[in-house]
């Protein structure tokens, strides 16, 4: 059975790009959404093994999403990766402080993401 990864990112191009990279890892199924609100709706409907989220988004920010996930007994064990861009270390640090497991800096290096995915999803 394939494991599900949720990607929350409002920029379409970034979203597609990350999705493509994650999908390239065998045994992974990707669910994408462009907003924090949608992510909140998706959480109870799927069993995600990993969440990758942007910080700066229009409705609720990524930090709030992380906090929500980490404080909710149903999801708190799901590892979270934060997407940041160079120069926004503040947001990244806050994300990590709230319980995000890793951060990805745009632009990404595909190999490194794959290694992280394998580690956190416990894939061979």
């Amino acid at each position: 059975m394939r494991v599900k990864v949720l990607i929350v990112e409002d920029s379409k191009a970034s979203r597609e790009y990350i999705a493509a990279m994650v999908e390239a890892v065998e045994g992974v199924e990707v669910v994408v959404t462009s907003s924090g609100f949608e992510a909140l709706k998706l959480l109870p409907r799927h069993r995600f093994e990993l969440i990758i989220t942007d910080i700066n988004m229009p409705d609720i920010n990524g930090l709030e999403l992380i906090n929500f996930v980490k404080k909710n007994p149903n999801y708190r064990d799901v590892p979270l990766f934060v997407i940041t861009t160079e120069g926004r270390e503040q947001d990244r640090d806050r994300g990590l402080a709230l319980g995000a497991a890793e951060y990805l800096v745009k632009p990404f290096v595909p190999g490194s993401l794959e290694a992280l995915l394998r580690r956190y999803l416990k894939l061979p």
């Binding site: 409002d10 920029s11 632009p107």
Partner: peptide
Amino acid sequence: FRAAHSLKGLSGLFG
């Protein structure tokens, strides 16, 4: 700001 931020991420992504 968000627009500039998105543009940065996007253009970085596409080299």
